[in-house]
């Protein structure tokens, strides 16, 4: 029983990080119908921001999340202004290919500037610490990331569902032309949504160097898993993406331990296929 609980805890903690990464993607997708293929690369850049702040200025990742969140907010807003803006009204494939190109650009830029070497941030506040509850172990960095995930996703959900800005976002998502007729500056909404979506993944990436090494490929698998969470949760549903993130984490952990470690991603992608087959709109889709 104890082992099962430990496996469950590991899975939930991983899953909540997936959820935070997925929340940003979900927001962009839900409002703009744009699949941001550069989402994993946003995560990677946020990790670099956090790493270099730690390495050069001795700023701990716990603090760096502010800078990495802000940095990716700006990167997201710029992505919209400089790229996505020009694909609005064009076939959906245009935005998809544009973000794919951006992903390649960002990855190769980091390869060129930082080399493919993986970088490890030592002596972080949380890096070595664990909390124990009986024999159950909670690694501090993952626990902090999970709490962050809960707070940030909750905050984003609250903003979208109960503020004037959130209503404007929902209106824009439903019908852009009608929203504009109601006086909503939809261009501003799009910029902010891309920024907030980026900030979510920026915050996740900011805390990650506490326990993961940083390299130009680090975001790829996270980006893919985020895509799966959004598709499983239901396009545009933030609570759906959050719960799907946790589900993915738990399935990965349980299958990895009880079937075989090498089976964990097979189980995750198998679950994704099953959900898409049985309910194409996702668990919470409408």
């Amino acid at each position: 029983m104890e082992t099962f609980l430990q496996v469950l805890i590991d899975g939930m903690l991983s899953g909540m990080v997936y959820a935070l990464v997925a929340a940003g993607l979900c927001l962009i997708w839900g409002v703009m119908d744009v699949i941001n293929f550069a989402h994993g690369e946003y995560l990677m850049i946020a990790m670099y921001v956090s790493y270099w702040l730690g390495f050069l200025a001795n700023v701990d990742p716990v603090v760096s999340i502010v800078a990495s969140g802000a940095f990716i907010f700006i990167l997201g807003a710029l992505t919209y202004k400089l790229i996505i803006h020009y694909t609005i009204g064009k076939p959906p494939l245009a935005a998809l290919l544009a973000t794919f190109g951006l992903a390649m650009l960002l990855k190769n830029l980091c390869l060129n500037r930082f080399s493919p070497n993986f970088l490890i941030l030592s002596d972080t506040w949380l890096g070595d610490k664990t909390f124990q509850l009986g024999n159950l172990i909670f690694p501090a960095p993952q626990l902090a990331a999970a709490i962050l995930s809960l707070v940030v996703v909750g905050l984003v959900y609250a903003v979208i569902s109960s503020t004037r800005f959130g209503w404007a976002v929902q209106a824009t998502a439903m019908d852009r032309d009608a929203a504009e007729l109601m006086g909503i500056n939809t261009e501003r909404v799009y910029i902010l949504i891309f920024g907030i979506g980026g900030a979510c993944v920026g915050i996740a990436g900011g805390i990650m160097p506490s326990y993961l090494s940083v390299h130009p490929e680090v975001g790829s698998l996270f980006g893919l898993i985020a895509f799966i969470c959004v598709a499983m949760g239901g396009f545009g549903s933030i609570p759906g993406a959050f719960l799907a993130g946790i589900l993915v984490g738990v399935v990965e952990s349980v299958a990895g331990f009880y079937i075989a470690p090498v089976f964990k991603y097979i189980a995750v992608f198998g679950l994704y296929l099953a959900v898409v087959f049985l309910r194409p709109k996702g668990i919470f889709g409408w």
Partner: peptide
């Protein structure tokens, strides 16, 4: 066995630990 480039190695280490 594990997939290279994994996001975590929790279940792998738990399997060893067990």
């Amino acid at each position: 066995p594990f997939s290279p480039g994994a996001t975590n190695l929790n279940s792998e280490v738990q399997t060893l630990k067990k």
